[in-house]
Design a protein around this nucleic acid. Sequence first.
DNA 1: CGATACAATGATAATGACTTTCATTCTCAA
DNA 2: TTGAGAATGAAAGTCATTATCATTGTATCG
Lengths: 148, 148
Amino acid sequence: MTTLDDSAHTEIRLRLARLDQRYTRLRRVLVEVIAAAGRPVSILEILASAPGLPQSSAYRNLSSLIESGVVRRVPGTDDHGRFELAEDLAGHHHHLVCARCGSVEDVRHSPALEQALGEAAQAVASQQGYRITEHRFDLVGVCPACLP
Amino acid sequence: MTTLDDSAHTEIRLRLARLDQRYTRLRRVLVEVIAAAGRPVSILEILASAPGLPQSSAYRNLSSLIESGVVRRVPGTDDHGRFELAEDLAGHHHHLVCARCGSVEDVRHSPALEQALGEAAQAVASQQGYRITEHRFDLVGVCPACLP
DNA sequence: CGATACAATGATAATGACTTTCATTCTCAA
DNA sequence: TTGAGAATGAAAGTCATTATCATTGTATCG
């Protein structure tokens, strides 16, 4: 459950402006719904949290927000996309995914582990010739609500 | 590039039989194409490697192989599914994903890192009440072929 | 304070990966 | 050999997501 301050909204407006896009009311609603969730949310959850928001507008504005680097789409286990704030707005974290119901939660790991992850990423990068831009350490399992 | 021996094929036949399914010629072709690739392959790549294989048969048999635990579907960055052998047939590994072209390669990390990953997974599990069944440590970047 | 250019909206149609259907063919087991 | 049931492949269907387009909103310039 993240709450964004004014400077964050100013930064978001700037990123949109770079692509000649506006920070409209709908886009602000989307950003606030996503920030308030504090975990990746599906379109259905977004539509439920923003009554009256047409599905087509939700998808279109989500695309704009993704293009401008405000929102990120995260791949889950089911075939519903999920959306969260870009990493530099939400802070570095990873995910805990339920293989049964598809829900996703945020998880933060120890600095020691994160350092090991980063070093491993760099080792592979220099070895394989990739330019690594991101690492994902996601845990998949069964959430308490889905356990027998 | 993995080649499967006879005992692997026997094991695959057994897993299918548990669900009253048969290890047909098409299914064997699919398994061999996937094993030979040594990385997650898309439907397009599979169809290209198996001339004459109808798309509907490819999808249907892939589903059977997934249900019986022979093949695993891995989420990429584009909207094409990719398929690889189940972990106990291919060995534990992770992925190096190109954000530009969507290609995926296998990567194996040091035992020390794998141990740290496993311990982190267990720590989160006991803390959050999840039963963790899998961890994914995927590196996302730009592959040498896509670099400017 | 308009006027104008252009982005945003939302209902609807289209796209495309994937799934299902179904009549026919194949295959295992008795 | 034969019958039960699984597999096949062409075609139709599903469903999340994307594009279209006429209309509306909104910054900016004179």
